[in-house]
């Protein structure tokens, strides 16, 4: 039985797509057959972050409308075994996502895949609602910043009231926090909310803390999920988060400022 995960946040620009790409890649690296679906109809970007933008022929909406077969739209990752991408349409709008259509595609995918990761668009409109409706697990991507935290709380409310599990009175969608763009040095200076502050406010378990890192932009520049950059703190933090998601007990790293030695100061190596 496959599991459906939604990567969601309410607010835009907090790192949903970056996290979806990294997380899906991490699951595939651990041997799980994984597909990551872009639900941001009209503003497709997962293909760019995954580096498969030139291989998109058919998309999610084509499959929903019966214009293409699922196998024609699925793109197999060239680097990682077991990893597939289902891109979305760049020309349609979110109304193309019907509940029946999405359900049909998810049902078909669940026969083949261990994990189906839904990359939600920002907002709480149709696209976001469709991406979370069928979810078993939700990963809430949040920045340590007031508007992001508030929007995350809002999306938690939506998950608890408007997901399939909520509507049918099933066991609730599990919810975990992925705190991204965390800057321990600014936290030390009192300029940024602490992990504990955000946890206290949102009151959901912590899946991982991804430090602010230049590696994220470098990775998206070249279309590589940042988790593959094993020299970067962000990549390692994503890897840890995937491990925790799978039930491993892994201590949180990169939550306190790193002591810079003379050598690293001279080299000014970025994380």
């Amino acid at each position: 039985m496959s599991k459906i995960i939604v990567m969601t946040s309410g607010k835009g620009g907090v790192g949903k797509t970056t996290s979806s790409a990294a997380f899906a890649t991490g699951l595939a690296l651990r041997g799980f057959k994984t597909v990551v679906i872009d639900f941001d109809v009209g503003l497709r970007n997962l293909d760019l972050v995954m580096g498969c933008e030139r291989r998109v022929v058919f998309d999610f909406i084509n499959v929903i409308n019966g214009e293409a077969k699922l196998n024609q739209a699925l793109i197999k990752d060239k680097r990682i075994e077991n990893l597939y991408i289902l891109p979305t349409s760049q020309t349609r709008d979110k109304d193309a996502l019907t509940r029946e259509g999405v359900e049909k595609v998810l049902n078909e995918l669940s026969k083949e895949f261990d994990y189906i990761l839904c990359d939600s668009p920002a907002g709480i409109e149709r696209g976001a609602l469709m991406s979370l409706y069928f979810a078993d697990h939700a990963i809430i991507v949040t920045n340590p910043e007031v508007s992001s935290v508030r929007d995350s709380d809002r999306i938690l409310g939506v998950l608890n009231s408007r997901s399939r599990r909520a509507e049918q009175g099933l066991e609730p969608v599990t919810q975990q926090l992925l705190l991204t763009r965390y800057d321990p040095e600014r936290v030390e200076k009192g300029e940024m909310l602490r992990v504990d502050d955000v946890l206290e406010i949102l009151a959901i378990p912590l899946l991982g803390v991804i430090p602010e890192s230049q590696a994220v932009l470098r990775a998206s520049n070249v279309g590589m999920p940042v988790i593959l950059d094993e020299a970067s703190n962000a990549g390692l933090a994503y890897s840890d988060a995937v491990g925790r998601f799978l039930g491993e007990d892994i201590e949180h790293r990169f939550v306190t400022p790193q002591k810079k030695g003379l050598f690293s100061r001279l080299l000014r190596r970025s994380a």
Binding site: V146, R150, E191, L193, I201
Partner: peptide, 10 residues
């Protein structure tokens, strides 16, 4: 600290 204010406001 501004972070303290952020938390209280939230």
């Amino acid at each position: 600290a501004s972070a303290v204010q952020a938390k209280e406001r939230l």
